[in-house]
Every structure is written in structure tokens, then in C-alpha cells.
Amino acid sequence: MTTTFSEPFLRLTREHAAWGAEQLETFNEFLPMGEWSADLGQCLYRQSGRELRISLLGTFDTDEQSWLWAWANPGFQGSPVARAAESLRAYGRTHGLPEFTSELLRLAAHEEPRRAAETLAFTAMGVLGASGYIGVQANPSARAYLLPDDPRSPSPNRTRSRSPVSCSPARDCSAAPPGRSSRATSPTTTCRCAGRPTA
């Protein structure tokens, strides 16, 4: 079991750190903390009166301390909501990044497994040129990580063009009921959560 990410992956994370942190501040201002709901079959996320088209990156199992990519999740394989994760897998294959090509990443040996999950989402945001990422408590033992794929979200503050990751409605499946929403942060800062308390 590895206790850290590969050096090429960490290099990629550092490459996106400056613009990514600034972009997350912009995105968090655009999408204030609050109650949320999601319809993954329709690729829709609602929070604080806003509705966005999204893609599911993956989920972090807080009990097992593991990350499962949406492309590897039997409930989402091949569906429109997993397209961003599919794009990451293709990028990982091309660039030799096991973090994007391994179905399940065991993060328990990392010093801070939750921060490792945030790092995966942050780096994915950078690679795909997304305007931010959203981390939500989907159920008591799982966090879902989503990427906005909506022209209404603030454009990334960099010159590199955004990778196309479109999500079109395909089937009717819903995420967990409304719950807590967390503000996305760069991996070097602490996540802040708000919304309805969990039991």
C-alpha cells in the first residue's frame, strides 16, 4: 500500500496549484454553501438556488478510506455522468498516471486520507480545466466529488483550453437526498462544510 501519490501525479498537482486555488475561490463565491440535491441521471446539481450541469468524478469511502472513480463504479459505468472520469482515465493512460487509471485507490496509508481524496479531485479539476469541484457528503460513509460542466459557472482563470466533457441526460438515477455541501479547497487548505447537520 502506497503512502503517497506518484511523483508524476504530484508534479501535475503542483502545476495546477496556483491557478487552481484562485479558481476555487472564484467558484466558491459563485456557489455559496448551503442545502444541496443532485440528480445524477440528469447530470444536475442544485445548491443555494443555483442549478448546474455536473459530472461525477468519484466517491471517497470514509470507512474504508478508499477512492472509487465513477468510470469504475458499476452504477455509473458508461453513463453520461461519468464522462469526466472517463476523460481522466484516458489522460492517465496517455501520461502513465496510475492515480487516474486504477479503479480503486486505497488512501488509508496516506497521512490524511481525506486530504488525499481532495487532492485527487483538485488535480482532476486542473487536468480537465474545470471551473471548480464540489465535495458533498452523499451518505454517512461516503463523499461524492463532482465537477461543474456548465457554461454558467465561472470560466477557469488560465489560458489553456478546457477539455470537452459533456454530460447529457441518459437515465433516471438520483444521488443521496439533500445534505451537506462542502466548499472545495486546494489540497493545502482545510475543507469547510455547511448545510444541514448530519446525524
Rank of each mutant, 00 (worst) to 15 (best):
F5V: 03
G58D: 07
G78W: 07
A175S: 15
D61L: 08
A176I: 05
D39S: 10
L146N: 00
F27H: 01
A175E: 13
N73G: 03
P80S: 15
A176K: 10
Y145L: 06
E86S: 12
P154W: 01
R160L: 15
N157S: 11
T123R: 03
S37Y: 01
S166I: 13
G75T: 11
D172F: 10
S131Y: 03
R83V: 14
I134A: 09
S66E: 07
D172V: 07
A175Q: 10
L97D: 01
S166Y: 09
A38T: 06
D61S: 11
Y91V: 00
E86R: 08
H95W: 14
T198R: 08
A175C: 15
P98L: 03
L31P: 04
T13D: 13
T62P: 02
P98W: 03
P8S: 00
T101I: 05
R46M: 05
S182T: 10
S168R: 14
G78F: 10
D61F: 11
L128W: 13
C43T: 09
T3F: 09
P98Q: 04
E111S: 14
L97S: 02
M125Q: 13
V81M: 08
G195V: 03
T13L: 05
S161Y: 08
C43N: 13
Q47H: 04
P80V: 06
P140D: 12
A170P: 02
S102F: 09
F122N: 02
N28C: 05
C167Q: 07
R93N: 12
A199T: 06
W71L: 02
R114T: 15
T26V: 15
H16K: 06
R192G: 04
T2R: 15
G34N: 11
S87H: 09
S155W: 01
A18S: 13
A121F: 04
Y45I: 06
A121H: 01
W67M: 03
Q47S: 11
S131T: 10
T123S: 06
A199F: 09
S141I: 09
S181A: 14
T188W: 00
W19D: 13
W71F: 14
A138V: 03
L56K: 09
E15G: 02
R50Y: 11
F5I: 04
F5T: 06
T62M: 08
R158Q: 07
G132F: 02
S66G: 11
H110W: 15
A194N: 11
E22W: 05
A70K: 01
R53G: 08
F5L: 04
R196S: 12
A144C: 01
G179C: 08
P80N: 08
S102H: 14
A70M: 05
L68E: 06
G34P: 03
L105V: 08
N139T: 06
S79Q: 15
M125R: 08
D150E: 01
A18K: 11
E103W: 10
R180L: 12
R93Y: 12
Y133N: 03
P169F: 03
G96Q: 10
A116F: 13
S186I: 00
L146C: 04
N157Y: 02
A144R: 02
H110M: 15
P32K: 07
F30R: 01
R183P: 01
V165P: 04
L57C: 06
A82P: 12
A142Y: 02
P80K: 05
R183E: 05
E112Q: 14
F27S: 01
T159L: 12
P151A: 04
A176L: 14
Q77L: 08
P140A: 10
F5R: 02
T94C: 01
A117C: 08
L10Y: 07
G132D: 06
G20H: 06
P187K: 00
